[in-house]
């Protein structure tokens, strides 16, 4: 028996928004410790890694490990049926071929039950090597989304260069070029508005804007985003999901021929 309850269904809606741009279907691996999902996009350029800890749920029970393959388009249809203030409960029996979603309004005046068929997905689990990243940048997530949107007007790729002084985002194409520099913030009132750089060595990497823009669909989940970079390895873009867990995106760089 698996059962997971979230008082705020809005969180699950946001998680789904954050992954459905990159993935059409995915397997949710449920265990005693929580729910995990790891999947690459079709082109194997990016990877989504979602971790929702059992202790972050309002109620959580998982007697046996369970892998639930879901079509994310269909899951989105069902999650759209939940009111913003509803509580959501996901349930499945052991070895079930369906997952149930129950939405309850405040005071339980309205209770809606939906069942979705599960899929058997071939899933390739990837091992991600432990990396000591040369640069870790923490910045407001809305600022990062804005920069990705603005720079993607200029070209398909953007360079991210990080030094002790700051982080520079740049792009160039037919219409011209764009450069945005963010300095490390000296003092800020709110921690989430800060730009903080931890640098061991300067790094400059180039990435496809299209994927970065997809990652920024996670912006509503967190006020801050963390970018981890080292030379010639995939970028990690991480959004915390409150006390519940995190979503991490890995993106392979563009490299010199």
């Amino acid at each position: 028996m698996f059962e997971a309850r979230l008082v705020q269904s809005a969180i699950l809606k946001k998680v789904l928004e954050a992954i459905k741009d990159l993935l059409t279907e995915a397997t949710f691996d449920c265990s005693d410790s929580g729910i995990q999902l790891q999947a690459m996009d079709n082109a194997h350029v990016s990877l989504v890694s979602l971790n929702l800890r059992s202790d972050g749920f309002d109620k959580y029970r998982c007697d046996r490990n369970l892998s639930m393959g879901m079509n994310l388009g269909n899951m989105t249809k069902i999650m759209k049926c939940a009111g913003a203030e509803d509580t959501v409960t996901m349930k499945a029996q052991d070895n079930a071929d369906v997952v149930a979603f129950m939405f309850e309004s405040k005071n339980q005046e309205k209770v809606s039950d939906y069942e979705m068929k599960l899929m058997n997905l071939d899933q390739e689990h990837l091992g991600i090597p432990e990396t000591d990243y040369s640069c870790i940048v923490k910045m407001p997530s809305q600022e990062f989304a804005r920069i990705c949107r603005d720079l993607s007007q200029f070209g398909e790729s953007m360079a991210i260069s990080c030094t002790k002084e700051g982080v520079k985002f740049s792009s160039a194409g037919d219409i011209g070029s764009a450069n945005i520099k963010l300095a490390q913030t000296a003092n800020v009132d709110a921690e989430e508005e800060a730009v903080v750089i931890e640098m061991q060595e300067p790094v400059s990497l180039t990435f496809a804007c299209r994927y970065l823009n997809s990652f920024t669909k996670a912006t509503p989940l967190s006020a801050q985003v963390q970018l981890s970079m080292s030379a010639d390895v995939p970028l990690v873009v991480e959004y915390k999901i409150g006390e519940l867990g995190h979503i991490r995106y890995y993106l392979a760089p563009k490299i010199e021929d």
Binding site: M40, A43, V45, L47, L126, G127, T206, Y250, P253, K254
Partner: peptide, 14 residues
């Protein structure tokens, strides 16, 4: 020029 790498060059199958 630069070309897009894939994750298989960095991560390993488990």
């Amino acid at each position: 020029g630069k070309h897009q790498a894939t994750l298989s060059s960095f991560f390993f199958s488990t």
